[in-house]
Design a protein around this nucleic acid. Structure first.
Length: 388
DNA sequence: TCTGGGGTCCTAGGACCC
DNA sequence: TCTGGGGTCCTAGGACCC
C-alpha cells in the first residue's frame, strides 16, 4: 500500500427518483413534483390523450415524500416529510407513486456506466456510490477533475440523468464535497481546503452526526459548525460522547478518515415491514392482522430464497400508536428460509411482546444469515443422550 | 391524522464456558 | 462458597443512513 494521497470520489444522483419519473413524464419538467405514498395515485389517461396527475391536496394517508424535485424543494418540501403536511404547504404539487423496480433499473445502469471508467466502486444504496480513483492513470495531475467530468458525462449519456460528484482524499470529505455544488456539481477538495470549505458547514452535515448528536453538540457544547467541532478539546468530546464516538467526532471535524472503498459487502439482515392505514389492536383487529403478519413472513421467505440465504435468527418489530418501537428476536437451532418456520418463530416472538396498545407498524426480520445449504454445526448432546 | 421501508453498526447486560 | 479475567453467543434498544 502506497502512502501517496488517495483520490476518492462520492457520486450522488440528483433528486434520483424524481429525475427518473421526469424522464417518463417530460411534461412535468420544472414543476414541483414529489414521489411517495402508495399505488393509488397513478396518472390517469384522459380522453384527449393527455395524462391527469394527482396532486398533494387529494392525498389521504400516512405516506412520506421519498424525493422532491428542486422546484418542490423551493416550497419547503423535502424527503421524509409526511405527505399530509406537504399538502398543506403546497397543495398543487404533483404526486407520483414510487416505482422501485424502475429506479433499480436506472441504478444498475448508472453504476455500470461508472464501472466502465472506474471499476473500484462501493455501493451505498440505490442512488449513490463511492469510487476509488487512486489507481487511474494521471489522476494525480488534476486531483481527479478530468476523470470525474468524464464519469458525469458517461452517466448522463447512459441514463439521461445528472449527478453530483465530490473528489477528495477520503470518503468523509467526498460525501461532503458532492453536496457543495448540487445539482450537476463537480467539486474537488484537498486537505488544505478543509478550513475554508468544510469548517463553515453545520456539524449535522457530517455523515454520522444525526439529529440527536447535533442537538447535543449544540445544547451541551454550543457547537453548531464543523469548525467549532474541530476547535473543541478532544478530551471533552470523549467525556461527553464516549471514547469511540468522541474521538471520531474530533477526527471527522478535521477531515480525517482512513476508511477504504469496500467493493463487496455481505448482507447481514433482510426485513419486511408495513405501516397500517389505521392503528390496529392486536386482539380486536386480529382478523385483519393475522393475514398481514403471515404475508410479511412469506415475503421475507421469498426474499431469502431469492438471495439463496437462510436465517438463524427471526425477529419482529412493532411500532405502537405513540411511535414507540419494540423488537423481539429468536435464534433457531437450524437456519431456515421456509415461510412456515419463519411464521412460527415470528409468532413466538409476538407472544413475548405487550399487545395492549394499538399498533401502527408490524415488521419481520431475518438475521444471522448464511448461504442456503450450509451444514448445521454439531449440536450439543441432548440430556437424554447423556444418560442413554 | 406529523413521522415509509429497507438497511448497518454500536452498546450493554446476562448466560455460559474455560 | 471467595476470588479472576476473557471469550462467545444471545437479546434489546438506539442512532444513523439512503
Amino acid at each position: 500500500m502506497s502512502a501517496a494521497e488517495r483520490h476518492i470520489a462520492h457520486l450522488d444522483m440528483d433528486a434520483f427518483y424524481a429525475s427518473v419519473e421526469l424522464l417518463r413524464y417530460p411534461q412535468l419538467a420544472g414543476q414541483p413534483v414529489v414521489i411517495g405514498g402508495g399505488r393509488r395515485h397513478q396518472p390517469e389517461p384522459q380522453p384527449d390523450g393527455s395524462l391527469r396527475f394527482a396532486t398533494l391536496e387529494s392525498y389521504v394517508g400516512r405516506g412520506v415524500i421519498t424525493t422532491a424535485t428542486y422546484a418542490a424543494r423551493a416550497f419547503g418540501l423535502h424527503s421524509g416529510m409526511g405527505l399530509m403536511k406537504a399538502a398543506k404547504l403546497a397543495p398543487q404539487t404533483v404526486l407520483l407513486p414510487t416505482d422501485f423496480d424502475e429506479y433499480r433499473r436506472f441504478s444498475r445502469r448508472f453504476k455500470a456506466a461508472v464501472a466502465e471508467l472506474a471499476p473500484v466502486i462501493e455501493d451505498r444504496g440505490i442512488d449513490e456510490i463511492y469510487i476509488d480513483l487512486s489507481q487511474i492513470e494521471g489522476v494525480a495531475a488534476d486531483h481527479g477533475a478530468a476523470i470525474a467530468a468524464a464519469i458525469k458525462a458517461r452517466v448522463k449519456a447512459a441514463t439521461g440523468l445528472s449527478c453530483s460528484i465530490g473528489v477528495t482524499p477520503n470518503k468523509l470529505l467526498s460525501k461532503l464535497a458532492s453536496e457543495l455544488d448540487k445539482p450537476d456539481g463537480l467539486t474537488i477538495l484537498r486537505e488544505a481546503d478543509v478550513e475554508s470549505r468544510i469548517w463553515p458547514l453545520p456539524a449535522r452535515r457530517i455523515n454520522g452526526i444525526g439529529p440527536k448528536a447535533a442537538a447535543r453538540l449544540e445544547a451541551e457544547c454550543g457547537i453548531r459548525t464543523i469548525g467549532e467541532l474541530a476547535a473543541a478539546a478532544p478530551h471533552e468530546l470523549i467525556e461527553r460522547f464516549g471514547r469511540s464516538y468522541g474521538a471520531w467526532l474530533h477526527a471527522a471535524a478535521h477531515g480525517r478518515d482512513e476508511r477504504a472503498v469496500v467493493t463487496e459487502q455481505e448482507t447481514t439482515s433482510i426485513s419486511r415491514e408495513t405501516t397500517f392505514e389505521r392503528d390496529l389492536h392486536a386482539r380486536r383487529d386480529r382478523a385483519l392482522l393475522t393475514p398481514v403478519f403471515t404475508r410479511l413472513c412469506e415475503q421475507l421467505a421469498a426474499d431469502l430464497q431469492r438471495h439463496q440465504l437462510e436465517a438463524r435468527t427471526i425477529g419482529i418489530k412493532l411500532r405502537y400508536d405513540d411511535f414507540r418501537t419494540l423488537t423481539r428476536v429468536q435464534t433457531l437451532p437450524v437456519a431456515t428460509a421456509q415461510p412456515a418456520a419463519i411464521r412460527r418463530a415470528a409468532g413466538e416472538c409476538l407472544k413475548r411482546a405487550p399487545l395492549e396498545q394499538r399498533l401502527r407498524l408490524l415488521g419481520v426480520r431475518a438475521s444471522s444469515l448464511q448461504p442456503a445449504g450450509t451444514p448445521p454445526p454439531p449440536q450439543p448432546p441432548q440430556t437424554a443422550d447423556l444418560f442413554a
